[in-house]
Design a protein around this nucleic acid. Structure first.
Lengths: 342, 342
DNA sequence: ATCGTTAATGCAATCGTTTGCACGAAAATA
DNA sequence: TATTTTCGTGCAAACGATTGCATTAACGAT
């Protein structure tokens, strides 16, 4: 049988309410009593029942995590481990624990979120993706439930708190970097087009081309549905063009691996015949061959900051709506872009 | 204000208990009433409060996840994403959700587990590592709480349910494989020595050497504390030996990446001058260069099976103690071992 | 000695469910 | 028709905490 607050009360010769106040460390209880009660708790090995507590004070000390529905595929990307690590670090520091629901379909994820929120299982939610027309964000917004998005939300982004990299800027920077190295024919390989990241990064890429006075060829922009495997088709398509590119901006390290592997098969050497630059700077970037030049976006920090904002919001310390935090990024130069071209 | 069971009851003109029974789909309620109640729930947008429910029926429909304390380092290994994916898939299928606590130190993790268990926050626990002398496992065992370990527990493993790869066998197999390719000088690079995996794999390695009539040199066995970075030292030590090995068994793909990267720096070519074989067959194994020959251990399956066992145990369908499930593995041959030597 | 203050604790209602038991009506049996 | 079953539903007591309000004792101040 579980040790309850009543047992402790009896042991310490006080009322349950007193024990409760000792737990909350209320100043209204005398030092002597506190010690006696604490001793009793210790002796009996008392741990408060979280559900009773949540029920009574309408708070859960838990944060919900919403993963993309294709979790089956996406969760493999170390990006997620890393954000979660950031989230869980901050959460733990503030005494929150984490709750995950998953679902195979988008609908299942949505249902999971709804019952998590309506069932009062969590005090706030971190959404780990952002997609066009997302029901989840819409729902959270409508129900005025504390939440923050990692990545830039589409709908009504001015009213939503989110934490993100300046992907537009990053896309622009890497493209300019390639141009500085002497490349004129620069392609872009991205993931799913309805993800905010892809759109932003490709946007920055285009802007850079314009600013540098380079033409924008739509045929230079390809998007592959998934990570590594997708790379193959994309690369083949690019290389079969009349004027194949000499450099490519890839929207993700995982995908870059796939791209490089395909290039390798096709006996196109990186960086000599093709420069590759990508984003996220996952640890594998360092150990691929050649090691990847990649944009460090501080994934851990994204998670950490997001949780920070969420906690502020839950404590109502935050501005009612729409805080945005941009986590800085920087380019880590390794070998995949080589030196200057010619 | 939250919509409660009473609101639904009022709306449907029944007692709260009836609503409760409708939720549980009790056969004692007439079809007509059920429909009326369901309609009312729908209309009001009713979702049961999980805490009230948990409190009343002493069940949580949640599974706790225990990660290694060095989560800071280890969580980066895609192994974890993948087990969790397996766990969450099975969990979701059976209507369980996942709960994570984390801690920086071993002590913090332990405290997290205790309060998760004693606070009745979860119905069962999956432990995602196994180490010598682990307080967590000991505690779970003592409190007779349902749990399962992914990996082989040390203490009293006969009484603990666990799901694992036959790492001993796998270690033996890959070593023999290298010998078959003609290698006589085979080294072993492993992770932390107090992890069960390392011990098992190195055990298999030694056995294979013996069985094949090869000498066991302790200097051929090096262990590096962490993943990729650790690889460097280990490799340098090996290569500075009088008779450097021509092949190496690495206990993990991540580490293998580090090893290969160091070999690359030292201008030792893989597989020509050094064969590398490793374990886990993470997706990066396919895209490294050269692509890694690695043992596929079905990480997803480990998580899935573990959860399966846990659910059986929670439903008391399981044998009281000590079920063990071995998930099969197989070698995936790629290019890191090359062809036959000489 | 009386009264008002203050400090420390206890009482009891409440949070939103579940569930054993009681109850009345309808159906089945005698 | 009287009596027993069966069926469908409601009552009320848990579950284990929190918290507003009441209570009591102690202590100065008058």
């Amino acid at each position: 049988m579980q040790v309850t607050i009543k047992d402790v009360a009896r042991e310490a010769n006080v009322a349950p309410s007193t024990v409760s106040r000792v737990i909350a460390n209320s100043p209204r209880i005398s030092q002597k009593t506190k010690e006696r009660v604490r001793q009793a708790m210790e002796e009996l090995g008392y741990y408060p029942n979280v559900h009773a507590r949540s029920l009574a004070n309408r708070t859960t000390q838990a944060i919900g995590l919403v993963m993309p529905s294709a979790a089956t595929k996406t969760l493999q990307n170390p990006f997620f481990s890393e954000v979660i690590r950031g989230i869980s670090t901050k959460a733990h520091q503030n005494g929150y624990s984490l709750y995950m629901t998953t679902g195979v379909s988008e609908e299942e994820v949505y249902e999971g979120v709804v019952s998590m929120v309506q069932g009062r299982r969590v005090d706030g939610v971190v959404v780990l993706y952002s997609r066009t027309d997302d029901k989840v964000v819409q729902f959270l917004q409508d129900s005025k439930f504390p939440f923050v998005v990692v990545g830039k939300p589409f709908s009504d982004s001015s009213h939503v708190t989110y934490v993100d990299t300046d992907n537009y800027l990053a896309g622009r920077e890497v493209t300019k970097y390639l141009h500085q190295l002497g490349h004129e024919c620069i392609a872009f390989v991205g993931g799913s087009q309805d993800l905010a990241v892809t759109q932003e990064r490709v946007g920055g890429y285009k802007t850079a081309l314009m600013e540098e006075g380079l033409p924008i060829h739509e045929s230079y922009i390809v998007s592959a549905p998934f990570m590594t495997t997708g790379g193959a088709d994309a690369v083949k398509r690019l290389m079969s063009l009349e004027h194949p590119p000499t450099a490519v901006v890839v929207s993700d390290d995982m995908m870059a691996l796939g791209v490089m592997s395909t290039l390798n098969e096709m006996e196109i050497s990186v960086p000599d015949q093709m420069a590759v630059v990508s984003f996220n700077n996952l640890f594998i970037a360092e150990f691929s061959s050649p090691p990847l030049t990649s944009v460090e976006i501080n994934i851990f920090g994204l998670g950490f900051e997001a949780t920070n904002c969420l906690i502020e919001q839950m404590n109502e310390e935050a501005t009612p709506y729409g805080k945005r935090v941009i986590v800085p990024h920087y380019l880590v130069v390794r070998q995949s872009c080589g030196g200057t071209v010619k």
